[in-house]
């Protein structure tokens, strides 16, 4: 049985057509409020080129680092506070909830908020956060004054102050260094006990070792070198054997140190004929030896291997 009210004027069909129409308008307005979606749709349909700043643009080199430093923590894809993203030129052009065009020089909302006193409720970055400098603000103003473009390069802004050089210090991974040292820790400890002051790490941040026979001078001989070479050859990076007692018999031990980059053998008993074999060391960059042992052929041989020869005159 159909239920009908006495004063029925609007049919269900008409009502739902009206609802569908209103829903479409609502959906349209909703999509319109998402300029990133609109742009993506246009790009997908080929109605608009991909909106992105040029790789060498002034924005990427000078403005983006400012946004990254002060703004992106809250205005990136993760948080997008106020529906605003400032992690790229593309996102900046989409603006945020305000819908204001942030690439305009006149009445730029972003700039206005950045210029507010730090304690103002509307100030950006908000109170308590690291704040931009006046120079950085001036740079943004300069960029906006030329159209807030993603295409202009540094050459278009000759009046902009030179970019400060940034020196980055990479974080030291102490755990990784310790792990690398672990493989030879026992041998290092034993040799350091047996031969004090002869073995040490190249740096606090390195697992590579330096063999320095200076402390033992005349007592350091082929046998001792064999101890070091057999235990630590792959991690020895420098060896100072100057004025020690090592002879031609030690050459094989030296050649086992494949990662050796610097070797000092002046004042030793190694003959000229054996020295030429040292050119086989794959990582060797510097060789310090007696001047008297270097002739033209030897100099050329090492030169061909890009090994620097440092000749020392023995007094």
């Amino acid at each position: 049985m159909n239920f009908k009210t006495p004063e029925q004027k609007l049919s269900a069909k008409s009502y739902f057509w009206l609802v569908a129409l209103l829903s479409l308008i609502w959906l349209y307005l909703y999509i319109q409020s998402k300029p990133a979606w609109v742009q993506s749709i246009k790009e997908q349909l080929g109605l608009s080129p991909v909106l992105v700043a040029k790789q060498d643009s002034f924005y990427n080199s000078r403005i983006d680092p400012i946004m990254e430093k002060y703004c992106a923590a809250c205005h990136d894809d993760n948080k997008a506070k106020g529906q605003l993203r400032l992690d790229s030129f593309r996102q900046l052009t989409f603006s945020g909830k305000s819908g204001a065009d942030l690439t305009l020089a006149e009445n730029n909302l972003l700039l206005e908020r950045m210029k507010l006193p730090a304690t103002d409720r509307m100030a950006m970055p908000p109170f308590g956060r690291e704040r931009h400098t006046e120079d950085e603000l001036a740079l943004i103003e300069l960029w906006l004054s030329k159209g807030g473009s993603g295409n202009l390069t540094e050459d278009d802004f000759p009046e902009a102050p030179a970019k400060a050089k940034v020196i980055k210090f990479y974080d030291i991974d102490w755990q990784k260094i310790e792990e690398k040292r672990l493989a030879y820790k026992k041998q290092v400890a034993e040799l350091q006990t047996q031969y004090p002051h002869v073995l040490h790490y190249q740096a606090r941040t390195s697992h590579l070792l330096v063999l320095d026979a200076f402390a033992m001078k005349n007592h350091f001989d082929d046998q001792m070198l064999t101890h070091f070479s057999q235990a630590l050859a792959p991690v020895l990076i420098e060896a100072n054997l100057a004025n020690s007692q090592i002879s031609d018999a030690a050459i094989e031990q030296v050649l086992a140190m494949k990662n050796l980059t610097k070797l000092q053998i002046q004042g030793t008993h190694i003959s000229q004929s054996k020295i030429s074999q040292l050119a086989k060391l794959p990582a060797l960059k510097t060789l310090v030896l007696d001047e008297a042992l270097v002739d033209e052929n030897l100099a050329m041989l090492f030169s061909q291997q890009a090994i620097e020869l440092i000749k020392v005159k023995q007094g």
């Binding site: 239920f3 009210t5 006495p6 004063e7 029925q8 609007l10 009502y15 609802v19 609502w26």
Partner: peptide, 16 residues
């Protein structure tokens, strides 16, 4: 929105 559509269905169509 769905709730309002239902409510106005009653008000406008069903006259309730």
């Amino acid at each position: 929105w769905l709730h309002l559509v239902a409510v106005f269905f009653y008000v406008l169509v069903k006259k309730d």
